[in-house]
Design a protein around this nucleic acid. Structure first.
Length: 742
DNA sequence: GCATGTATGTGA
DNA sequence: CACATACATGCG
């Protein structure tokens, strides 16, 4: 019996069912849609909806729409629902949380979680063939190529795609088509993408040192606790941190849950993937921005369908809708690459901790040189801490020598960049049949080119930056916007001919000097210009390992955890490079980078030597590196930050005002400063020109909000921005917890 | 984010 | 006046 009728209530027309749908657009909130009668939707369902003249995808954010909002008669209907498991509730809460924290729209965050809309569609079945076993039809001509294909198909095996068959039989795709038309091959529909292979959590791992085993036990315990925890895994280079967190991944896999590993630059870590494969038998699913097209689609679907037990990725992998995430590892947690600087501005390490908290799962932050933030959290007990003290394999720490570039006897000759002390060390290393490495974090030939006769400096038309001469490619390049140009024959200002002089060194110039000093040495240059794609990096690495290279010269790309047994000398050409500029973390970052570079020297049984050229040998960074005293450096750095109420002892947020019209940008920035929030614990600095006052043709100003640690900056920022109209031609970006300072 | 309408400018 | 281009708006 109908309950409504029975209770005397008139059964009117059935109410319109409405849902809130979040769209991947920068809108303030979700939109309401009507649910068709024949459709069932739960929160998290992926749907397609009409939006103006377009059709866009969205995710059902709530099943009870806003009745007081758009009237029912103006609602549009959900068009269809995609055949996918709904986005889990944790993922949805995480998206809302990140949006609120970063002051961006939830739709923009959703875009990061579903960055391949094509992956929502069912994948097209792939055509594959099996042998039909039929006899050839009359008129069939047997050829060598056809025979090869048929012979190949004699072997038992799964159906194979035309492309695979053609490749294996070394024939054209037309041969396959011909055979299919003759009825000798039977077409079958194949699942378009094979499932990723399953890592084997039960494979025995490597033998761990007592320290490693203790650390692995502690991390495993965190996984088995099945609750939120954040743990710093602090271990010097070569202490075997990776093996330790692999054990935590194994524990997570044994629970049947997914594990996520965030790496700073996934594209550069094929060594990491190999290591993973050695431990678990297969490679994990990768997720990063270089992944495109079908690969990206397949990876997303595998993750969402719970078919990717382990995902390794760059920062953006954090936002993917994992159905049952059980562990997050942030490797090299101190790396600046985790900070996303445009669009939704966030720090992946911090967001990872938030994701762990919302999901009730453990997060491991791994580093040899932890960030001050993480270290402070470990010291105050907010995070757990696991120390891995020993350098695995028995190699001792390298001997670090500071070369004072101010002293006449250690200064390089004019127009040279290598101190005689370093050159002597290089001679010794080469004579001993060992390898050396020179590090300079500056691409190109020279950072600045100027006209000898009038002093004109070659500058980027779109940015406040010098154009960098690249001799290898015979071009000038802007390292900020990608502008390139030929080196002009005559000075654009005074028209003098061949008047340009290079000022200062880049790696190319150091390579030139090395070629003069050591004409017989085999030299390899390693920069992002010379190495296009991960394969190229791998090739150089192999060559160095095979000792086909005596001297390696390069930038940051070279500093990452590759280890070379015969490398015993590291020369840092300009140790002061990172210290300039108004960066809050300049000292910390320089220390981290140089520490990592120094760690390349002498890893096996050979002792390593590091020579660090600097103009400030008394600087705490240099002293800490020479004395191998990281903790003293961090303590001093912490004292300074505390004294100035800077993070992690105070909070920062930045506003970046940008636009093409400099006067308009300047005016808005000054207007914002005028209506800045006030209070005892609140201070607004600026506006000041942003570090690159002109970037990609846009003028930029920065305002900095500095508050005490306990202050919630988001509401402050929100009311601040709402208090003043912002013209459409000017953009105001909010950077909560900015990395660079002014 | 993007398609759309409206305001504004450019040239015959 | 026709047409191109800049900016503001709303999308449920």
């Amino acid at each position: 019996m109908d309950l409504l009728t029975a209770s005397g209530i008139e059964a009117g027309p059935p109410p319109v069912r409405r849902v809130r749908v979040l769209l991947p657009l920068p809108l303030a909130s979700a939109y309401d849609y009507r649910v068709p009668d024949d459709m069932d939707l739960e929160a998290g369902a992926y749907v397609e909806v009409p939006l103006g003249p377009r059709q866009v995808f969205g995710v059902v954010w709530a099943v009870d729409g806003d009745e007081a909002g758009v009237p029912a008669n103006r609602l549009k209907s959900v068009l269809r629902r995609f055949d996918l498991p709904p986005m889990p509730e944790v993922s949805r809460r995480f998206i809302d949380w990140v949006a609120a924290y970063t002051l961006s729209s939830p739709g923009s965050v959703l875009r990061m979680a579903v960055s391949v809309s094509a992956a929502l569609e069912d994948p097209k079945a792939l055509l594959a063939y099996l042998p039909s076993g039929d006899s050839p039809p009359p008129g069939f001509k047997m050829t060598d190529a056809r025979r090869r294909v048929l012979a190949l198909m004699e072997e038992e095996g799964p159906p194979r795609t035309p492309a695979d068959l053609a490749r294996e039989a070394a024939c054209g795709i037309g041969v396959i088509r011909g055979l299919a038309e003759s009825g000798l091959l039977t077409p079958v529909a194949l699942r378009a993408q094979p499932r990723p292979p399953i890592p084997d959590a039960h494979r025995p791992g490597p033998t761990l040192s007592p320290d490693q085993a203790a650390a692995a036990d502690a991390l495993r315990a965190a996984v088995d606790a099945r609750g939120y925890s954040a743990t710093l895994v602090d271990g010097v280079t070569g202490s075997g941190k990776t093996e330790v967190y692999f054990e935590a991944i194994a524990a997570c896999l044994r629970q049947g849950r997914q594990a996520l590993v965030l790496l700073p630059e996934i594209a550069l870590s094929s060594q990491w993937l190999d290591r993973f494969a050695r431990r678990f038998g297969v490679r994990p699913v990768e997720w990063h921005s270089d992944l495109a097209g079908a690969h990206r689609r397949a990876a997303w679907r595998a993750i969402v369908n719970g078919e990717a037990p382990v995902v390794v990725g760059a920062r953006s992998a954090l936002f993917l809708p994992y159905p049952d995430l059980g562990l997050i590892v942030v490797d090299e947690e101190h790396e600046a690459a985790f900070k996303q600087e445009d669009g939704v501005i966030y720090h992946a390490r911090d967001m990872a901790v938030a994701r762990g908290f919302l999901g009730g799962i453990p997060v491991a932050l791994v580093s040899a040189t932890p960030s001050l933030e993480t270290l402070t959290n470990a010291e105050t007990g907010r995070y757990g801490r696991i120390d891995l003290p020993a350098r695995h394999g028995g190699a001792s720490l390298p001997d670090v020598t500071l070369i004072d570039l101010r002293r006449p006897d250690s200064r390089p000759p004019a127009r040279h960049w290598l101190s005689p002390i370093l050159v002597d060390a290089m001679k010794e290393t080469l004579a001993a049949g060992e390898q050396g490495m020179l590090f300079l974090n500056r691409r190109g030939y020279a950072p600045l080119t100027l006209c000898r006769s009038c002093g004109f400096r070659l500058q980027c038309p779109n940015c406040t930056a010098w154009l960098v001469e690249h001799r290898l490619s015979r071009r000038l390049q802007c390292h900020h916007c990608g502008y390139t140009d030929r080196l002009p024959e005559t000075c654009p200002s005074c028209e003098a001919e061949h008047s340009f002089v290079a000022c200062g060194p880049g790696v190319e110039r150091v390579a030139e000097e090395v070629a003069q000093l050591f004409p017989d040495a085999r030299v390899a240059l390693m920069t992002s210009d010379t190495l296009v794609g991960p394969q190229a990096i791998q090739t150089v690495i192999e060559e160095v390992r095979a000792h086909k290279v005596d001297l390696l010269i390069g930038t940051q790309v070279m500093a990452k955890g590759h280890h070379f047994p015969m490398l015993t000398l590291v020369g840092v050409v300009d140790g002061d490079l990172g210290l300039g500029g108004g960066d809050l973390r300049a000292a910390e970052r320089t220390f981290q980078m140089l520490h990592q570079v120094a760690g390349r020297a002498g890893r096996e049984s050979r002792p390593g030597r590091v020579f660090l050229q600097t103009h400030m040998p008394e600087h705490p960074v240099m002293q800490a590196l020479a004395a191998h005293d990281r903790d003293a450096f961090l303590a001093a750095e912490a004292d300074q930050r505390r004294a100035m109420d800077l993070p992690p002892y105070g909070r920062l947020a930045a506003l970046i005002v940008s636009g093409e019209d400099e006067r308009q940008v300047d005016k808005l920035a000054r207007d914002l400063a005028r209506v800045a929030p006030q209070g005892d614990d609140v201070l607004v600095l600026g506006p000041a020109p942003a570090p690159l006052a002109l970037l990609r043709g846009r003028h930029r100003r920065r305002l900095l909000l500095k508050t005490a640690r306990g202050v919630a900056v988001q509401p402050l920022l929100q009311s601040w921005l709402a208090s003043i109209p912002i013209p459409g031609t000017v953009r105001v970006q909010v950077d909560v917890d900015p990395y660079s300072f002014m």
